[in-house]
Write a protein that binds this DNA or RNA. Structure first.
Lengths: 161, 161
DNA sequence: TATTGTTATACTCTATAACTATA
DNA sequence: TATAGTTATAGAGTATAACAATA
């Protein structure tokens, strides 16, 4: 058990070759992270750099696009991000006049969030650029049907969270 | 374009309800991140905390499991992580006697990495705990066949990276 | 007393830059 | 001159804790 002297030609030490990932093949978290390398690059190139939007900033804008009047607490829960982090993010977005806050009338602690006109324009551009970028990057390896199925499976996976 | 006065009963401002994620439905990067929340939790509970392993540490061990004699440079490329980050990670793993380094004979700059006996035992335990944990967490929403397909689609998505 | 949101602070992760040794 | 690896430093992201205002 201590030595592996006999030169093991079965394990050629592949010093310059690609690594065998088979132990991690069925580990969803690993495959998720590997695929994420690709989508992160796409985001940075298509949205992050050209529009100076961080991932969380973009995501908040996109959620507000479909949910005008949403509360910070809802964003926090939907994205599994701390309220503190959301607060700082909203502060930045408001500073860039991409969102507005309106204090709640029935509950004075809350504030209803919504996109400004330029915020709406920004999300629209970002969503289009992202979809084009992802389709191009994934298209090399996945058919459109496979991409749709991947999105659907991921959505289901995260559903009960 | 400036006002949205007319009370829009179609958008009920859903202050306490779940948010509508439809604008992001087909954004793979978003779905990836959402599913990642789940798998990250599983990792922390099944591996990270009980075995005091960070994600990258576990991944390095798992790759060395299938690739004895691999080089730091290979890990760096396979995982899209900087050589500096890999070096620090290897240092920690060696300090815990989970891996060994052996200087290359043909190229004195390199070092071949391999698991120690306790490193091997650690990976085996971690992989089993992870697989059980993921199956349990995802099982609520995905059938075993769907889980396998998800892993396969993710693998294909990241293939050409 | 619990909840919404904020500020201040600190920690983790990961990267960039500068360097050594070998090729 | 280029590459493998290391060290030192810095930055981005994210969390915890303490707080203010409202319910």
């Amino acid at each position: 058990m201590t030595t592996r002297r006999h030169a093991t030609p079965e394990t050629p030490r592949t010093p310059a070759a690609r690594l065998d990932e088979s132990p991690l093949r069925s580990v969803i978290g690993y495959q998720l992270a590997q695929a994420g390398v690709l989508t992160d690059r796409v985001f940075d190139a298509a949205v992050g750099e050209p529009l100076a939007l961080r991932r969380l900033e973009f995501t908040v804008l996109a959620l507000l696009h479909g949910n005008p009047g949403a509360l910070a607490r809802q964003l926090s829960r939907a994205l599994a991000v701390t309220p503190a982090h959301i607060a700082v993010t909203l502060e930045r977005l408001e500073g860039r006049a991409l969102i507005e806050r309106e204090r709640g009338t029935t509950d004075g602690r809350t504030q209803h969030l919504s996109l400004t006109a330029s915020g709406t324009a920004m999300v629209d551009r970002a969503l289009k650029a992202l979809q084009r970028g992802e389709a191009a990057a994934l298209g090399a390896n996945l058919s459109p049907a496979e991409q749709a199925m991947l999105a659907e499976l991921l959505h289901k996976a995260a559903a009960g969270r």
